[in-house]
Write a protein that binds this DNA or RNA. Structure first.
Length: 210
DNA sequence: CCCTGATTCGC
DNA sequence: GCGAATCAGG
């Protein structure tokens, strides 16, 4: 990949917007963040002219990925305000609240209800599961989840990255709220345990007859 | 560990 | 000019 006018253009724009080098690299595709940084310096715009310092965002592209066969980089969001923009935030909309209803046979301990139980904001990029049947979770799965939640990393919204589980735990209205934070399952927004409860096959829906 | 940008330096 | 390797830091 070479620095065509268009690519440089994008680079300049994104850099000005406060996007991180890795984000820009990902957007452009075919280049590493190092390449981006190098270019930025060569262009002499290293110092983001007193612009709003957007908090760095997650992105993977450290080590080496030179001749990355590159792939059609999805185009998630359209650069948020450089002020407090945060990629993960865009991808991890706090799911709607919902009181532990029939879903949690357990006490009102920490019973998050499936985030996707409603038309949550779906990131433009990777789609979320179509129909998260939601509510009935097998006892084993539930137990597993509760177990995992005990070792959750308790991350705050700002601490989430593309590879941390974004399952919310607790009540958003209180301090007793955090995100799981364990390593996500490849391509999913949640860790293995939470993917399990979020992406119910579609069966297990032995709806009570009526 | 994850990530950030800055620099160096062989190509 | 380019960017991987490396450095320094959060």
């Amino acid at each position: 990949m070479s620095w065509t006018d268009e690519r440089v253009e994008t680079l300049k724009r994104m850099w000005a917007e406060g996007q991180s080098a890795s984000q820009i690299a990902k957007e452009l595709g075919g280049v590493t963040r190092n390449a981006v940084i190098g270019k930025v310096h060569r262009l002499g715009l290293s110092n983001r002219a007193g612009a709003a310092p957007a908090r760095p965002a997650p992105a993977a592209a450290s080590g080496a990925a030179p001749a990355a066969k590159e792939k059609p980089a999805p185009k998630p969001e359209a650069s948020p305000a450089a002020a407090t923009a945060q990629a993960p935030a865009a991808q991890a909309p706090v799911p709607p609240e919902s009181r532990p209803a029939a879903a949690a046979p357990e006490p009102q301990d920490a019973a998050p209800t499936p985030p996707a139980s409603r038309k949550a904001i779906v990131p433009a990029g990777q789609p979320l599961p179509p129909q998260p049947s939601a509510n009935e979770i097998s006892p084993e799965t539930l137990a597993s989840v509760r177990e995992v939640e005990k070792t959750a990393k308790r991350l705050t919204l700002m601490e989430l990255t593309e590879r941390t589980c974004k399952w919310p735990i607790g009540d958003p209205a209180t301090d007793d709220f955090w995100f799981c934070g364990l390593p996500v399952q490849q391509g999913k927004p949640y860790c293995e345990a939470h993917v399990g409860v979020a992406f119910q096959p579609m069966s297990a829906r032995r709806d009570r007859k009526r």
